[in-house]
Each structure stands twice: as structure tokens, then as C-alpha cells.
Nucleic acid binder design. Structure first.
Length: 286
DNA sequence: AATTAGACTCGGCCTA
DNA sequence: GGAAGCCGAGTCTAAA
């Protein structure tokens, strides 16, 4: 699940709760999820302090007091759960039917803090990772990302430039992190719907107006999704009694067979495009 | 014409 | 067996 809005939601939660805490110990139960040496990973983190949580695209970046950074990527099924007494801050993949006794069998890395609280990194499919990097290495990583939506650099002009000389499909371009950082499969489908553009449309065939609509779609949908605290396919409620509320705003994703909520004529179809489930209304998306 | 860099596509990583 | 992400290998394409 975790795309920009979900990662941003967990970033805010962790920044509020963990920033300033000293790490008492780190337990790595599955070495696969640590990139590089596990020994070094533990050595760097033990006794270190989380200063600040940042985000670039779908990548979480925790600044450490030592001057290094902890990179966290949740990929498809990663979850971060911070437990402090009865308080829980959690984000990432669906929590439906999850075993809330922590750690559970999908818990691969555990951070323990001096105040008794803990941070669990769970990942069912084990695609996610954590990695320690230096400032130099971080800058190298960040160069791989395109423009960041919801920042001043995300202008129509920059967006239009990205679409110049591209031969791929509208959806594939929206999802390419090198050009636009943060959109994944759900939000790319939603943005295409917003713009009335069929996800498979080749970029050279898009009109100026359609590109502008795609741009507006990115802004409107991502801003709304962040405000709703992301799309959480679960009944999970966080410490403030809130849950990811964007699911009810989804217009096409997960709505195969339903009547289109806009034109009320088409029926949402689901096809495979570039190996990904792709949803659209054949009536109002051209 | 041959070369090269960048764009593009797709399989694989895993679990349940 | 469905899947919300990304990397790397391989192929394709435009430029000069």
C-alpha cells in the first residue's frame, strides 16, 4: 500500500513520537531486510538518537545524531508500528486480520528505546529494507528521485517538461519515480481517472489540456489523500482514534464491476498493464 | 554504419 | 493465489 500519502502519514507519526529518543537496542531477526552489514547496522544504531524523520517519494529518511541516516523503504507490504504502553502509531501495509501481539511472525527488526517503547518493522513479503547511509550516500540516493509533488518545485511547467519526448504510457510515466516521486499503482489509476485519460494512452498522444488535468489530478488527489491520512485497507485505528480515510474517496481502484461514479454509464474495468492491475472507466476515460 | 546513452519493458524478489 | 514497489537484465531507439 505505501505510496506518498501513506509514507507521509507514518513519517508524521514517527516524527512526533520518536524524534529525540535514544535507541537502547536493535534486534535484527531477518538479515535480508537490512542492506549491507547487519553487524554495522546494529553497531551504528545502538546508542544513537533519532533526530528527525523526512521523506522523499516513498522513502523514509531518519536523521541520526551520529550524522548518518537510516533509510526505510516499505515497498509492497512493509509496516512500521510504534508501541508505547497502550499507545500505537502504525502505518504501511493493510492491518486487516493482523496479529497485534508484537512481535509477530512478520516482525523482522525491532528497535527498543530507553522509555520502554518499541518500534517494529514488519513485512509479509520481505521486499522492504532498512539501510544506514552517510550524508554523501544519502545525497546520491536522493538524486534518483524526480520532482516531489506537494512542493513548490512541482509546477505545471516542470510537469509538462517531463511529458516531452516520452513514448511510454501515461500511467507508466506517472509511476516512474525518476520523474515524479511518490505515485504508485493506486494513485496513478486515480490521477488518470481524474484527468479522464485512459492509463494506457501513449504520452505523445496527450493534449496540452490532458497533461494539465493530470497535473491537477496529482496535486488534488495527493493533497486530499494526505489530509485523509492515506489509504488504509483496514479497521486499524491509531492513538488518536483515526484511520487512513482515503479509501472511501477512491474512484476506480478496487472498484472493478461497479458503475462509474462520474459518468454513471460506464462500468469500471480492471486490466493488466505493465504487469500491474489497472482500473479505469471505458466510458469517460479516453 | 557503427556506437552509445537513455528510454523502455519485464521477470524476479517473497508470502499466503 | 491477489498484490499497493523497485532493481537489473535485456531490448529498443534516437542522435550524430
Amino acid at each position: 500500500m505505501p505510496e506518498l500519502p501513506e509514507v507521509e502519514t507514518i513519517r508524521r507519526g514517527l516524527d512526533n513520537q520518536i524524534a529525540g529518543l535514544r535507541i537502547k537496542s536493535v534486534q535484527v531477526k531477518k538479515a535480508r531486510l537490512v542492506k549491507g552489514s547487519v553487524k554495522k547496522f546494529i553497531a551504528v544504531l545502538t546508542g544513537n538518537v533519532f533526530l528527525k524523520f523526512n521523506r522523499r517519494g516513498k522513502l523514509l529518511i531518519a536523521a541520526l545524531k551520529s550524522g548518518q541516516f537510516l533509510l526505510i523503504h516499505l515497498k509492497m507490504t512493509g509496516q512500521l508500528i510504534y508501541q508505547h504502553g497502550r499507545q500505537l502509531i502504525a502505518g504501511g501495509h493493510s492491518f486487516v486480520g493482523m496479529d497485534w501481539r508484537l512481535p509477530n511472525r512478520h516482525t523482522h527488526i525491532i528497535f527498543s528505546f530507553r522509555n520502554g517503547s518499541r518500534l517494529f518493522f514488519n513485512d509479509l513479503r520481505q521486499f522492504g529494507y532498512m539501510k544506514i547511509v552517510s550524508k554523501i550516500e544519502l545525497e546520491k540516493e536522493l538524486k534518483k528521485f524526480g520532482i516531489e509533488p506537494l512542493t513548490a518545485g512541482f509546477s505545471l511547467k516542470n510537469f509538462v517538461e517531463i511529458f516531452a519526448n516520452k513514448k511510454t504510457s501515461a500511467k507508466a510515466l506517472l509511476m516512474n519515480q525518476k520523474f515524479i516521486a511518490g505515485l504508485g499503482n493506486i494513485y496513478a489509476d486515480e490521477v488518470c481517472f481524474y484527468a479522464k485519460v485512459k492509463p494506457s494512452r501513449r504520452v505523445p498522444s496527450l493534449t496540452e489540456g490532458e497533461i494539465k488535468k493530470l497535473y491537477q489530478g496529482c496535486r488534488v488527489i495527493l493533497a486530499k489523500a494526505v489530509k485523509a491520512r492515506g489509504t488504509t485497507f483496514s479497521d486499524y485505528v491509531d492513538a488518536d482514534g483515526r484511520q487512513g480515510g482515503f479509501i472511501k474517496f477512491l474512484k476506480v481502484y478496487g472498484r472493478k464491476g461497479e458503475k462509474c461514479r462520474r459518468c454513471r454509464r460506464g462500468v469500471i474495468v480492471k486490466i493488466k498493464q505493465g504487469g500491474r492491475g489497472t482500473h479505469f472507466c471505458p466510458q469517460c476515460q479516453q
